[in-house]
Design a protein around this nucleic acid. Structure first.
Lengths: 116, 116
DNA sequence: TCGTTACATTACTAGATAACGATATCACCA
DNA sequence: TGGTGATATCGTTATCTAGTAATGTAACGA
């Protein structure tokens, strides 16, 4: 487990960090990010895979683009989006781990009947 | 650098993960988390250190409490808050790193005059 | 018991934003 | 040039939420 620096952040840095978290705070945007795990895709493909509406998918994609999480390449009448910040997956893994740990702890608080 | 699993998440998991990110998407809440880096503190202490209003600080603290990021201990008329999910700092470190990398990349795009 | 201190909760307002239909833009082709 | 498909943007509405003042609650001391 990599150790954190625990360095205090300046006010401006806190703003930037919170903005990054905000970009990832919508289920639809996380769905798009995960849909792009296996390579770049067009908007239509993402619309099909996520079941979203075109205008909405397009807007969320531009939010992720502005946040520096995705990249875009235009070819013909299509736009191909791809992940450019791979640290996204480490972030999600960390969060999944801590959510898992918390649920296990809550189970233990109930008296841990199944174990022992 | 620890490698991510890149495992696809279910719909319910995506909801949970996005909720965790949402809890961290406010500068004020990050300020509170960082103020608690050096140990547990009372609400009044946090009000003093962050410059916030009591009601607002109290509300943000309860959001972080519900998210499982903070813990609370009551003693006398005071409430002592503390960090119970240390992975928070790794999250922030990751985000800081990727923000830094992105800024460096933007500098390079400008032609990298200083580093011939 | 009365007052005080510390904290939580409620009620309200202003601002942000997600979702969606409609429209605009742009590339391509006949 | 006109038509079509792909994407982006606009306008609107509904929902959410941060902030704040006022009030509620609980513990402690005189």
């Amino acid at each position: 487990m990599s150790e954190s620096t625990k360095r205090k952040l300046s006010g401006a840095a806190l703003e930037k960090v919170s903005e990054r978290f905000k970009a990832l705070s919508e289920p639809m945007r996380l769905r798009l990010v995960y849909a792009l795990m296996d390579g770049e895709k067009t908007v239509s493909e993402l619309v099909r895979e996520t079941g979203g509406v075109q205008a909405n998918v397009s807007k969320h994609l531009s939010v992720l683009l502005d946040a520096g999480i995705l990249g875009r390449r235009k070819q013909g009448t299509s736009s191909y989006y791809r992940i450019v910040d791979e640290s996204i997956f480490e972030l999600c893994d960390l969060v999944c781990g801590s959510i898992h740990d918390r649920l296990v702890a809550q189970l233990d608080e109930l008296g841990a009947p199944p174990r022992s």
